[in-house]
Amino acid sequence: MRAADIKPSAAGQEVMPSATDPCESPRVPTFGLGKTFEGGVLDAIDVEPSGEIRLCGWTGDPTAVPDFELLADGVPVPRHEEFRLHRPEVAVLLRSRGAHHGFGVVFRAHASAACNVIEIRLGSRTLAAVRPGVRRIQPHYQHLFDEQQVLHREDIYGFGPPTPEADEHVLALARSLPGPVLDFGCGSGALVRALLAAGVEAEGIELRRPEIVASLRDDVRPFIKLHDGGFPLPYADAQFGAVVCSEVVEHIPEWRTALQELARIAREALITVPDMSAIPALFPHHVVPWHLLESTHVNFFTQRSLHAVLTPLFARIRFSRLGEFQINGTRVFTSLVAECSR
């Protein structure tokens, strides 16, 4: 739990988060409260960027859930659901045979709510007020908070339209590449657009699919070649100074041929793939990264396996990582990056 400063206020106990470490990834604000009420204790409140707000505590009666009310910036927040929690230490303290003395109460703030101040009430009493300092983020898969239908694999492991904006980290790497630059699997042409705006000679190639055609804007359309996905690629040997292949090769059944083609048509290559090491790294936390739920991934690379397949194609290979984040203090990355040259 992040340290916090607690001070009294007119609204009750007000909790202020301490200054954050600039080298530490943001965490969900969790505030220890320890506020007693008749029949139990309110232990903590979690304020998620998604707007989900959870109260946790315990009651002497293992069947009772207090009728808490929550206000975000003075506006009532709807109560979403409640559940019991296993709290054997409370059962020992109370000499109770029931172990589920703990409770969780979930509230869901509207997307427009800033949640600058969260106030917790029970009856006429204000138990606490917190200033979470959290930036609201509308999550993907938001419907899973309250979906009423039984879902199936195809409902979860999905894919969507190409992103309309270039990844800033990939763009920073691509801008240093020698031109002309080809974006292989360019999607909507976002990276091509950004490179052209930066004065880099660039073009892209992508599969001819309805969602791709619909995503191409007029300003970048002349620089994008659409094809049927076959090999060899319609380019001469060493036609490009560099090729970018960002989050693409994991989708291609003929991945080995694709990599051979990239090495044929360009002197340098910037290749990114999902970093599969995040799976075992996060296993102790029982977490699978969101970006690995993409249904069209057919190839899965580690740094060693990617190095092995690139070594016959390029004389120099340097690895890096993009998309750093932390789960309970474990540092992982979304993408494995290979910078290659012949």
Rank of each mutant, 00 (worst) to 15 (best):
273 V>C: 01
246 S>W: 08
266 A>N: 09
274 P>H: 00
249 V>Y: 04
261 E>D: 07
260 Q>E: 15
283 F>N: 05
280 P>L: 04
255 W>T: 15
264 R>D: 14
292 L>G: 04
274 P>M: 00
256 R>M: 06
283 F>W: 03
274 P>L: 00
285 H>E: 15
274 P>R: 00
251 H>K: 03
254 E>D: 11
283 F>T: 07
258 A>C: 11
260 Q>G: 15
260 Q>W: 12
276 M>N: 09
285 H>I: 10
251 H>Q: 05
288 V>P: 08
262 L>W: 02
248 V>C: 05
293 L>T: 13
275 D>K: 02
264 R>P: 12
248 V>G: 03
262 L>H: 04
286 H>S: 14
288 V>K: 07
292 L>K: 02
268 E>K: 13
286 H>R: 12
257 T>G: 12
287 V>L: 03
248 V>I: 08
259 L>Q: 04
252 I>E: 15
282 L>S: 00
280 P>M: 06
293 L>E: 10
247 E>T: 12
294 E>A: 07
276 M>V: 14
269 A>D: 08
269 A>Q: 04
289 P>F: 05
259 L>F: 02
246 S>A: 15
278 A>C: 04
255 W>S: 09
263 A>D: 14
276 M>T: 14
268 E>R: 15
248 V>K: 00
271 I>S: 01
247 E>D: 14
247 E>M: 14
257 T>N: 12
270 L>P: 11
276 M>L: 11
293 L>K: 06
246 S>C: 11
264 R>Y: 10
254 E>T: 05
264 R>L: 10
294 E>D: 15
269 A>R: 01
272 T>K: 00
275 D>A: 03
252 I>D: 13
271 I>A: 00
252 I>A: 09
284 P>T: 13
284 P>E: 15
284 P>W: 11
266 A>W: 06
293 L>M: 12
271 I>L: 03
270 L>F: 07
270 L>M: 09
288 V>T: 13
267 R>M: 12
253 P>R: 05
289 P>S: 07
265 I>D: 04
257 T>M: 13
294 E>T: 13
280 P>H: 05
247 E>W: 02
287 V>I: 08
258 A>W: 09
246 S>N: 14
256 R>A: 09
249 V>K: 05
279 I>L: 05
283 F>A: 09
292 L>F: 02
248 V>T: 10
282 L>V: 01
272 T>H: 02
265 I>L: 05
252 I>T: 12
287 V>D: 07
279 I>C: 01
